[in-house]
Amino acid sequence: MESNETHLIGLIKSGNKQAFDEVFLKHFKSLHAYAFTIIREKDDAEEIVQNVFVRIWTKRDQLKEDGFFKSFLYRSVHNESLNYLKHQKVRSNFNIHYADTVKNDTGNLNTEIVATELEKNIHLAISELPEKCRNVFQLSRFDQMKYQEIADALNISIKTVENQMGKALKILRLKVVDFLILIFILLK
């Protein structure tokens, strides 16, 4: 799977637009969903993915054929999203906050907000994981890959995949434990 991707990157590097299109179609939805978890804006999430792919195409000669292409995509989308949020914040900090509160003006307002916040926090925590840990975790969660597939893709042993997944969960739990307690109380 990943080796096929490495082959595609080679083609993109040599200016093959079809290979580029193929990679875009393959990853667009998950990248879009990933951007959406961070910025919560559908159209802007697409623009963020576009930005990343425009840069990939215009600077295709700098691409690396090392099997970490997917991680690179997630990383790029993540950085682009944070950048977007930074600008958004400057533009109108108050508006977003206000709109968010009004939108959820229903009975189970609190649960919804907390659930969204939990997701947001988890993704933030994921992006802060150590690189190796993050690569493994994202392939497992974002792309629903089996341990064996991850091991093949990253050229590591299954044992390492197990270790990294356990480590990731441990770190993530520590970071979002407050939210988990809150959800526990609300859902009771």
Partner: peptide, 23 residues
């Protein structure tokens, strides 16, 4: 909970081919 919430919520209403055209 962490594993469930770290899954990406794929938005199936978006067509990736149209997105490619826009790109």
């Amino acid at each position: 909970k962490i594993l469930d919430n770290s899954k990406l919520q794929i938005d199936h209403s978006i067509d990736e081919h149209q997105a490619l055209d826009r790109l």
